[in-house]
């Protein structure tokens, strides 16, 4: 995590779509803010315990301020709710220097895909590409048009190179295969959105012959979030004691165990090290770790509570001795 070195004032807050709020930050101390590159994100200190990352929408000529757009997730873990509900124009907040884990690299041809709030880094990339007169196509995938931010602005920038698909309002599902049909070595894909969409696009693009190095997506969204929007709650039954712990839709199994005062060793908290591995006596785990071998995964008799979940309503597990 970078230092939260800048105290900024919220110089504008406005709703730009259903549940999406745009914030503009300017330096309080009057100092210069570092200029972000397309795809950068900002650490925002929502409360002393809570720092969240939000992608910047700044284009190449938009310097001297930072702009982010935040989806207020009513069911989320609270960061976006606090920011959207508690902060108003004129309030001050601390932010870090922009960091870029999703840089836009030079390419002959670009394909941008944004799913929902994933528009924010893509918006900054599109502004850059328009300025540099780069050839691109842009697909904006959303549930409903009313939930898509910046459609009018993007329409002005992109014209005929923009396609909007609203799932709930369209007759058919969006055809990802058609979008990804013609890869070539000079064509690069940038996608940002829900993890499921990113995974589906990565898989289909690879199958369609895209080079792995030409597929770019925001990685921190994965490692930063072990729980996804589509996750559901499930029960952990502790075999020795018959205690049943309900793992909420918005927490990990490890967090639920800790919340109930049960001690489980852990280390990496991302499914790499296996420190938290538990035996599973009943039920089918949804393995999301990278620790288990293929054979261990198929045996379904252990799982890593730090990131894995359940494919059955309940898992019976044994606490480590």
């Amino acid at each position: 995590m970078s230092d939260l070195q800048f105290l900024v004032e919220i110089t504008s807050k406005q709703q730009v779509a259903e549940d999406i709020f745009e914030f503009e930050f300017r330096s309080v101390e009057g100092g210069e803010l570092p200029v972000p590159s397309p795809g950068s994100h900002l650490d925002v200190c929502v409360s002393p315990e809570l720092t969240r990352q939000y992608s910047l929408t700044n284009g190449p000529d938009e310097t001297g301020f930072y702009k982010i757009a935040v989806l207020r997730e009513a069911e989320g873990r609270g960061g976006s709710r606090q920011l959207c509900d508690n902060y108003q124009q004129g309030d001050q907040i601390r932010v870090g220097a922009p960091r870029n884990l999703f840089p836009l690299e030079p390419a002959e041809e670009l394909l941008f895909v944004a799913g929902g709030i994933g528009i924010t880094p893509i918006y900054s990339m599109i502004k850059q590409s328009v300025k540099e007169n780069n050839s691109f196509k842009f697909y904006y995938l959303t549930r409903q048009q009313s939930r898509a931010a910046y459609v009018a602005e993007l329409d002005k920038l992109c014209g005929k190179d923009m396609y909007v698909h609203a799932d709930a309002e369209a007759d058919q599902r969006f055809d990802l295969d058609a979008m990804l049909a013609s890869p070539n070595a000079g064509k690069h894909l940038y996608v940002c959105g829900p993890e499921g969409l990113i995974r589906a696009i990565e898989e289909k693009a690879t199958a369609a012959g895209w080079l792995a190095g030409n597929i770019h997506y925001e990685l921190f969204s994965r490692s930063d979030s072990l729980v996804h929007d589509s996750d559901q709650s499930f029960d952990l039954r502790i075999s020795d004691t018959d205690q049943v712990i309900t793992v909420g839709a918005d927490e990990t199994a490890l967090e639920a165990l800790q919340r109930c005062g049960l001690e489980v060793p852990f280390s990496c908290e991302q499914g790499v090290c296996g420190s938290c591995l538990m035996s599973v006596e009943e039920g089918l785990p949804d393995h999301r770790d990278m620790f288990l071998t293929d054979a261990e995964r198929e045996a379904n008799n252990s799982f890593t509570p730090c990131c894995s979940r359940a494919n059955t309503p309940s898992l019976t597990v044994k606490l480590p001795a």
């Binding site: 280390s267 990496c268 790499v272 090290c273 296996g274 420190s275 620790f291 071998t293």
Partner: peptide, 18 residues
């Protein structure tokens, strides 16, 4: 020694375990 392991350790750990 309880190493703190990172995402980049996925391959080396699989090898150690094998």
């Amino acid at each position: 020694l309880n190493p703190v392991l990172l995402s980049s350790d996925v391959g080396s750990l699989r090898v150690r375990r094998t």
